[in-house]
Design a protein around this nucleic acid. Structure first.
Length: 597
RNA sequence: GGGGGUGUAGCUCAAUUGGUUCAGAGCGCUGCCCUGUCACGGCAGAGGUUGCGGGUUCGAGCCCCGUCACUCCCGCCA
């Protein structure tokens, strides 16, 4: 038997034709005299009918069918009797009357039910253990398909625009800057290791030196860091690099890509060009470099107003060079003491000394601090925060970075609370794309007491800021850009340094990497740049995150066929696992762990 | 490394303050009945070391300690 159609294909137009379908028994409805089977494959469901008056042997065999049996059915397509059409199914106008049934493979009773209309979904641990069953569920199949369509649209887009897809090595060199790497021991080079790439960054820059001009890759990347709902140890990036471009070229290119992808995946037109926001503005208004601009709750500055305040906490912050900012949590005066405590704890965990607040209730400001405010200060607050009955005002007064961080986090928490209480609507299908630009090239890290690259050390400074590199490196802006969507960092990139002297200066003078270390890690790069490296720049988008957003799930595991748990374990294959002593001997590795197997 | 949540039947969950619903419901599963169902229906039935180990108590699914797994967050992710 050879399959003639898939299970989502038959329509009224096929009525009268012979058809052979193959698939899984999705549901069995045995009415005693007549048996209905809903047959499922990747493309959909079709009702097949076993009628003893039509074909007795098939009907008899159909008694033994159970969930998830794999079967082939041969029969003819007929219109369902009047009144029995199922408008919920695309194939619901017709059914297949079976002449011949073949059980290709029986199935044990699945550990969880695969239908999605009935009982609630099984927990994720079980789903991951039996991922091959979980992926049969139509909602997961839908995610796999959407992911494919996005990848296909991206490939076509890049192809149309003159890009070459080039694969880069998975076995790479260890470069301990940045994320922790997965190491791979080399058998033929005892004691030496490869590392799996955190990204193809250095290779794609070498491809530019190689004259590839326009490169892209849908690239696997690896980071041995702790996981999150939106972070897996191995993940996929849409990786892009071009020669002879400016930032403006990059914005237009990526806007075109995302518009293409949204059209392909969701059939939606998204407006381009995307708005742009400077890093400083994002931090001042939203307390985040990836602001969700779908709702307000913006940070409002009161540094000037409280510079002479009698309230010592605010005045002290201003006197020592800090800022005073506030947000109005509209309608949250109903906040409980417990919630205030939680918010205060959150604020403290991000470096605040406390959390000053005002509840506006019953026409008065209820707050332990309001007695310190004079009329002018109250007036400024009322006007700039548009204070009304029922509002809750939260303050941050500290170093400006601390206030950004604290109020930025509180803003998101408050939005969640307001959403739950129905006081704030954040549309899920509104797409607020945003370029965040003009990041500082260099950030001072107080813990290591040295300057670090905000993005990565290959990012080119803004040309007119280069003279500041020696005197005030943190004032230098980088030619870096992030693409943000609804508060999620979709990706980022930069125009790169292509001059060997400037690159060497960044490594050695600014980032204080010892020359011999810079030479051993990046020497080949500095050398390559001496052989006519074109000006170039690139970007990388988080492909899993992109797909998750398009699928409407907050969890990237839902768009990855075989993801790992929060402890980086694959529950289906039980990896990682112990290895044979011989394997370790071959690799010249001795273990130093308790309970080693 | 730290903090929060969860763990009871194959699955999803319930079980008032520790004590007459000390193990229950729906779905699934098994058997029987049923010729137009599509969340089919009806009848009957099987199925439990309440994650694991300890402790407190006259008595623990519930309280305490430890541990394991999953999950969310912080740190981390150039």
């Amino acid at each position: 038997m050879k399959r003639t159609q898939h299970c989502g294909e038959l329509r009224a137009a096929h009525v009268g034709q012979k058809a052979i379908l193959m698939g899984w028994v999705h549901a069995r409805r045995d009415l005693g005299g007549i048996v209905f089977i809903e047959l499922r494959d990747r493309e959909g469901n079709t009702q097949v009918v076993f009628d003893p008056q039509h074909n007795k042997p098939s009907w008899e065999l159909a008694q033994s069918l159970r969930s998830e049996f794999v079967v082939a059915v041969e029969g003819f397509v007929r219109k369902r009797p009047e009144g029995t059409q199922n408008l919920k199914l695309p194939t619901g106008e017709v059914e297949l009357l079976v002449d011949h049934l073949e059980i290709l493979n029986p199935s044990e009773t699945p550990p969880f039910q695969l239908d999605e209309t009935g009982s609630a979904q099984a927990n994720e641990e079980l789903r991951l253990q039996y991922r091959y069953l979980d992926l049969r569920r139509p909602s997961m199949t839908k995610n796999l398909k959407l992911r494919h369509r996005v990848a296909k649209a991206a490939r076509d887009y890049f192809d149309t625009n003159g890009f070459l897809e080039v694969e880069t090595p998975i076995l790479f060199k260890s470069t301990p800057e940045g994320a922790r790497e997965y190491l791979v021991p080399s058998r033929v080079n005892p004691g030496k290791f490869y590392a799996l790439p955190q990204s193809p960054q250095q290779f794609k820059q070498m491809l530019m030196v190689a004259g590839v001009d326009r490169y892209f890759q849908i690239a696997k990347c690896f980071r041995d860091e702790d996981l999150r709902a939106d972070r897996q140890p191995e993940f996929t990036q849409i990786d892009v690099e071009l020669s002879f471009i400016t930032r403006e070229d990059m914005y237009a290119l990526m806007e075109g890509l995302l518009a293409t992808v949204w059209l392909a995946a969701r059939g939606e037109k998204i407006p381009t060009p995307f708005p742009r926001m400077q890093f400083l503005e994002a931090m001042e208004r939203f307390g985040s470099d990836k602001p969700d601009t779908r709702f307000g709750l913006e940070l409002v500055d009161f540094t000037k107003e409280f510079a002479q305040s009698k309230f010592k906490v605010f005045r002290g912050a201003v006197d020592s060079g800090g800022v005073v900012k506030a947000i109005n949590a509209k309608g949250l005066a109903s906040v409980t003491q417990g919630q205030i405590e939680t918010l205060t704890e959150t604020a403290k965990s991000f470096g605040a000394k406390g959390l000053a607040f005002i509840k506006v209730e019953g026409g008065e400001w209820k707050s332990p601090i309001v007695k310190f405010f004079n009329d002018e200060e109250k007036k400024a607050l009322t006007e700039k925060l548009k204070i009304e009955e029922g509002d809750l005002i939260l303050f941050g007064a500290d170093k400006r970075e601390t206030v950004w961080e604290v109020l930025g986090r509180l803003r998101l928490i408050i939005a969640e609370i307001l959403k739950k209480e129905g006081k704030l609507k954040v549309p899920e299908d509104q797409w607020n794309f945003l370029w965040v630009i003009d990041f500082p090239l260099i950030t001072y890290n107080p813990e290591s007491k040295r300057h670090v690259a905000t993005h990565h050390p290959f990012t080119s400074p803004v040309v007119e800021d280069v003279p500041l590199l020696d005197r005030e490196p943190t004032k230098v802006r980088g030619q870096h850009y992030d693409i943000v969507l609804n508060g999620v960092e979709l990706g980022g990139g930069s125009i790169r340094i292509h001059q060997p002297e400037l690159q060497k200066k960044i490594f050695e003078q600014v980032l204080q990497i010892p020359p011999e270390v810079a030479q051993s890690r990046f020497g080949y790069m500095l050398q390559a740049f001496r052989y006519g490296a074109p000006p170039h720049g690139g970007i990388a988008l988080g492909f899993d995150r992109l797909c998750a957003i398009l699928c409407g799930t907050p969890n990237i595991r839902d768009v990855i066929a075989f993801p790992k748990t929060a402890k980086a374990v694959d529950l289906m294959t039980n990896s990682p696992s112990e290895v044979e002593p011989k394997q370790l001997r071959d690799l010249h590795i001795k273990l130093d762990v308790e309970d080693a197997g």
